[in-house]
Design a binder for these strands. Structure first.
Lengths: 231, 231
DNA sequence: ACCTGAACACCGTTCAAGT
DNA sequence: ACCTGAACACCGTTCAAGT
């Protein structure tokens, strides 16, 4: 793996540990896996370096050998999860379906990891696993006639919307925010002369679950993008 | 202010403080103002109950008389800032311009308070100051022929995109994330046979500042929404 | 090279006690 | 009614010391 062919003999501490115990050494990969577990179990606000260490059966200080700080660990977890998204085989003749397919795959992954979705907001996830996705976008949309800059900005926009929606889903799943539950009634009881629209449409607005909203946003974005296709 | 006309005499501690000192009593409003100051000065990660208390010249415990917890304080600050957005006089005949105007006003406010923009992500800002805005949206878009549910979902989408973009602006302003600076070169040096699109368009993608991106997103959203107008 | 314990400088929140 | 100090149960990160 190194560029020079020669290398010094192993130092004594490289070799077999104590007494045949597994003593599996920690790797950055294992730290990321443990971090993802913790994030899935306790969410972002419960995500603690000490908790990750505990998941690994070690102390918090140990993690810092493999990772710079908490922020970097979150970025690594984010990239790991992004890598789980499967890309459809590019086919620009049906680019709208392809975008829909990708968006739904991404949504599913974020729904499985709402803590990661929350962490992704306000963090630009530039990791190696994002690169093939960007390439895919440029290819599919470029062949469909969307200029590269519009294509890449659209990809940003789609990621942002997808993550934010996953977060909202995650929040309303937890009993955590009771705000949304009472929202319908709150709107309905406002003074009707001041807020005629809200009071009359309150029920209709509260209706519609997370999937409806996601699909609406996706459809709107695709229709908007379609207007950028040049012939 | 109370429903019964009678009331007991003031208790002794109601009356003039020590010795003519101002001794201005704290109010929830002042706490929110101080919190906004702190958020503007040190950002969300520096936003601390102790820091807010210091801004008020008191101890952290004092705050808890006026506010439930940190989360509620953030919601209050969010609503305060939302209240700063000015609404154009409704005129549905030029609804596209009206949405543009509103979006730019909102963007400006969030740009002045990037810490608040960050806090808004992943938090549903249901406060009293949001109500007139929702009403305005339903009115303008409803009269233009957009169904109420589409109108309210669009408002959500616009808020989400605006906040997220303000966050990205705020991040790239701070030297904080050096990730974006090196992004262009990173993309350009990727193996060209594996990533032909990225490598050839790297320069073009890195170009375009925050305003360009915001305007693109806004335009795309409006074009998408236009397709929902029913005649 | 990799791991550890203990420490440092912080957090949010509570609670008895003051005025 | 409102404010305070001190405490509790935590944090992220560093660092000397171990193997």
């Amino acid at each position: 793996m190194t560029s020079s062919g020669v290398s010094a003999p192993d130092p004594p501490w490289w070799d077999p540990p104590g007494r045949g115990e597994p003593r599996t050494t920690l790797t950055r990969d294992k730290v990321v896996t443990a971090a993802l577990h913790v994030l899935d179990e306790v969410g972002l606000q419960g995500f603690t370096m000490r908790r990750v260490a505990q998941e690994l059966g070690t102390g918090a200080a140990t993690i810092y050998w493999h990772i710079a700080d908490k922020e970097q660990l979150l970025q690594l977890v984010l990239d790991r999860v992004i890598g789980e998204i499967e890309l459809p085989e590019p086919d620009s003749t049906r680019w709208q379906d392809q975008i829909r397919e990708f968006a739904r795959a991404g949504r599913a992954v974020f729904r499985d990891h709402p803590g990661v979705a929350l962490a992704s907001l306000g963090r630009t996830p530039v990791g190696p696993n994002l690169v093939p996705i960007m390439e895919w976008f440029l290819r599919v949309l470029g062949e469909a006639g969307v200029p590269p800059r519009a294509a890449s900005w659209f990809a940003d926009l789609l990621a942002l919307v997808g993550a934010a929606q996953a977060v909202e889903d995650g929040l309303s799943v937890k009993t955590n925010n009771r705000a949304l539950d009472g929202l319908g009634e709150y709107l309905a009881q406002l003074p009707a002369d001041q807020f005629p629209q809200l009071t009359s449409f309150a029920a209709e607005m509260a209706r519609g679950d997370a999937d409806d909203r996601s699909e609406f946003a996706l459809e709107l974005l695709i229709r908007g993008l379609a207007s950028y296709v040049r012939q």
